[in-house]
Every structure is written in structure tokens, then in C-alpha cells.
Design a protein around this nucleic acid. Sequence first.
DNA 1: ACAATAGTTCAGTGTTGCTTCACAACAAGC
DNA 2: GCTTGTTGTGAAGCAACACTGAACTATTGT
Lengths: 286, 286
Amino acid sequence: MRTPTDAQLRYLIAALEHSTWAEASAVCGVSASAFSQGLAALESRLGLPLFEARGRSRVPTDHAQAIARHGERILAELARLDDYATEARDGRRGVLRAGMIDTAAIHHFGESLVRYRRARPDVELRLTVAPSAELIDAVVAGDLDFAIVVAPEPSDELSIDVVLDEPLRIYPPPGTADGIDRDPARWGPWVTFPSGSRTRQIIRSALSRSGAHFDVVAESSQPAVLREMVRLGMGWTVLSAVDAETEPHALVALPGEPLALRTLATIRRPTAPMGKTTQALLDDLG
Amino acid sequence: MRTPTDAQLRYLIAALEHSTWAEASAVCGVSASAFSQGLAALESRLGLPLFEARGRSRVPTDHAQAIARHGERILAELARLDDYATEARDGRRGVLRAGMIDTAAIHHFGESLVRYRRARPDVELRLTVAPSAELIDAVVAGDLDFAIVVAPEPSDELSIDVVLDEPLRIYPPPGTADGIDRDPARWGPWVTFPSGSRTRQIIRSALSRSGAHFDVVAESSQPAVLREMVRLGMGWTVLSAVDAETEPHALVALPGEPLALRTLATIRRPTAPMGKTTQALLDDLG
DNA sequence: ACAATAGTTCAGTGTTGCTTCACAACAAGC
DNA sequence: GCTTGTTGTGAAGCAACACTGAACTATTGT
């Protein structure tokens, strides 16, 4: 014995709400014949009489009432599922697992995130802030829908879209003699990101291109910590301007061109379809 | 866009519960092919990605989880409907609208009714106690599933099954002279049922066959009232033994054969299918 | 390289739900 | 009575659907 169709339950409810089946079938948008057959099928599936012949019309049995109540609940649940699907389809509902490096989350896209939360309160936004390498692993593993990281090498496992290039500038400790920027050989020593860091690689190669030594005396993955160490005179650093030049205790960069550009990119797994929740945030970032 | 099938929801839930689809499809009792197609159909109906290719297995998306929860509720409601149907099919659940004349309800079938309520607590038993004519109308109108009444004339609108014949005996007031039973001409006057009553017709024709006058000095539809009037000496009556001879204040019948037999029968509308709830009570009465 | 595993695609099949048309039962009119 | 309109049912045909079995692709383990 098969389970009742949602159409059949709709027929039953309509039959109880209207005095005549012709009327009810019209409301359901099917022919009177289909309506009649549908109710007959429902009766046989349930194994219960739902209507009783009385003259030329049908009178519902007590079972019909009880079953219609069950039917209403079932249809209500189906409608809730449909509502969910509709909201999820256009990204008003769902889960969005985002990853960002700290600079992106705080300085570049903080506002976007706030806007997004306000615009889509039913989206469960889970933000992971971590270094690029960690975020890349998480994206590849499928633990994140996307991440904004320092652009990695192209790879089959990632689709990469550049979102912005930010300047990395050199920040000497306060009180460093003027004119020293002319002679890279006298730069340093350095406080910078830990050795696994992608930004550290960029810095190291840029410095070596400039002819500077890269002798590291202190490490931290936190820009704020590096800035403070420079302020205390422990050494020089290279940071993005937004990290170094924010109050309190803003640093002052060596004048001239930036040492290098750091490219930030969104990364996603190319095999995973992009959900509308993700889409919407990425659109806003661009 | 059509609504999801219950089978498709079952597939989704199974897919989330088992590590491999082959296993899940086996649990659902369908081929891996049908399973895969079913989930694909569900995805397209909802317009949402439910699974994501990862190596050679599929990983559910966040939507899949949420939708499965909705699906569980829908299936639970369907199961409740099915439970209702199962119980209703074998008469453990539903409504039973019964009618009985007072004598039947109190003396003949009171025990049956009590037994029935105890055996089938989920059946909503609605008992109407009224005179035969009224019950017959109610049955014909479809307001009662069946009734036990004084057997009426055969009719197209009723199916009639005799359940018992009960003796109607003559009850004189206390202190009536012995030997008077030999002379029907000296019987009476009478207190008896109102003129519309079926039992009164039986009594009148039986008395006239015996050669007695049928002069009525008081009427009531309630046997207990008639009995009391006889006890107070207002006149004679004819009652079924169970009504007249119960304590307190039992009457004593004229000796000899009963005046007449009153036939009680169950009546039903022949066009209405007999439900199991009705069936069960009628079986018990027999 | 090879076989085993996981899931998909394809063609074919039976069932279902629908439509249209014809029909039976009934009520109300003349 | 006869006719007419209404209400619901049955039959034939059709399109959609869910299923199966077999061939197929892609991934993983050895």
C-alpha cells in the first residue's frame, strides 16, 4: 500500500471545504474526473471510506474529517520545506562559512561583513580568521565555502580571483636617522611574520631584490604585535599600510615607492557549486 | 516546480545516515540507480545543491541537513496519518454514533456498551437514547451509524436485523382482585406510551385481539414513570418484563403467557458501508 | 597497471495522474 | 409523464515518473 499523495490530501481538504466536488475540483485546478479518481485512490490507499453516497452528492465520513486534519499538517510541513527552499535559493537563508586573513577581515572587508549580516539575518555566517596557509587547507578540505587570503600559486584544487593589491611598506623604528632609506644594506634587523607565512615570503624576496639583508630578530603572526615591537625599537618591519598606519601608535613608512604589492584573492574549490549566500557576499566585496 | 516525493525525502535522510549511497539505497530497498536519480530529482525540484562531489563520494551540503530535518517532520506526519488509518481500519479508532431505545440501552445492552468502551478507548462512542421513531429518522438522515429500536416495517431505506424478542406482560395495580386475568373485558384503564409510540401500537393491537378495551388515562414515554403510576393505582400497564420487574417497586405481572412479543432490531442505512467500529459493537451484541 | 569501489547515465518498462468524452443517477422544471 | 441541467463515475489515451539492469566514468587501493 502506497502513501497518500499531497495532491490527494489537497483534494480531500478541498472537498470538505466546498459544498460540491465540481467546485472543489475547479479550485484545485483539475478536472472533476481527476478529482473523483484522486479521492477514490486516497480511499483505497488508506483502506477507509471517506465519503458516503447520499442522493447525488457525497457526504464525508468522520474519518474524512480526521484525515483532513492530518493532511493539513502534512501540507503545512511541505509548505515550510518549500519556504525554506525558496529562501535558500536566493541566498536569504543558509550557512556561509567564510575565511579571511586578519587584515582582510578587519581593514578591507569588515564593513562588508557587517552589511551582509544586516541584510541577511537568516544566513548563519561563520567567519574564520587565520593565516593564509591554514585557510587554504580549510578551503581545500571543504570546511570553508571561500576564503580571502594572500594569493597562492594557481592550482587545480583552487579557483582564485584577485580582489585587491595592497602596498607593503617598510617601517623603521621611531628615531631612525633620515636618509637611511637610500641604503638598503643598512636596513634591519627585522621583526616579521613566522616562517610559514606567505607574506613573509613576499617580503623576503622583495628585500633581497633590493639588496637588503633579512635578519629576523622577532616573529609574530599578528600585525599589531609587530607594530608594537617596532615602536619599542626592536627592529624594522614590513607591513601593509592599513595595518601599520592605524591609530593608536601608527608607524611612519620609509618614503617613496612601496617595497612590494601583496595580492589578496578569494579562493574556492572549483568543484563545489557556488551558493547564493556565497555569491552575494563576493558580489558585495567586489 | 513539483513538490518533493516522500521517497525522495527518505533517500535524503538515508543518504545522510549512511556513509555510502550504495548502503543507503539498499536500506531503502531500491537500486543505486534509482537512489541517485531520486536525489538528483530532489535537488532539481528544490533548486538547491544537496551534495557535492568529493573524490568518489558525495558530501552533503548544509542545505541537505536542513532539508532532511524538514523531511523528517513530513515523514513523521505521514506516519501519524498511516497510524491513524491502521487503527481506524480495524475499528480501534474513530467515531461510533449509536442510538438505542431506553430499554435496550439500560437492560439489554448496557453491559455491552461498557465492555465496548473499555475495549476500545480511542473510539468516540456517542450514544443517543430516544424513542424508536426518533432514532429511525436519525438513522435515515445519516446522523446515526445504527440504532436499536422496536423493529419497524421493512423499507428500502433501512436494513433491519432482529436482535431479540422480549415479552410484554400485563401489570395491574397492586391489590387488584385475583382471577380478573381471566376476563379481558374487565382489564384497564391503561397508562402507557404516547400515541406515536411503536410499542403502544403493539400493545393496542394485542389487547384488542384479546378483547380488552384500550382506554388510556395517562401517558409517558418513560417505563419508570409508567411503573410508578401503576404502583400509585392510576391504572394498568403493559411493559417488557425487564422494565416492570426491576427493583425498587417491581410490579407483578398477570400470570400466564405474555400479552405479546416486542421485537428489537438493529437498523442501519443500507447504502452506508458498515465501519469496523460499528461492526465490532454489533458483533458483541449478538 | 590493475582491480575494486562509488556513483552516474541510458534505454526500457510498468505505474500513476491527468484529460476528454461518454454515461448513470438524481433533482427540478414544464 | 418527459426533458433538462447538475453531480459524480468509468473508459481510453497520453505524458510524466520512478524503477531496473547494464554499461560507463572516475577515483582509490594494491
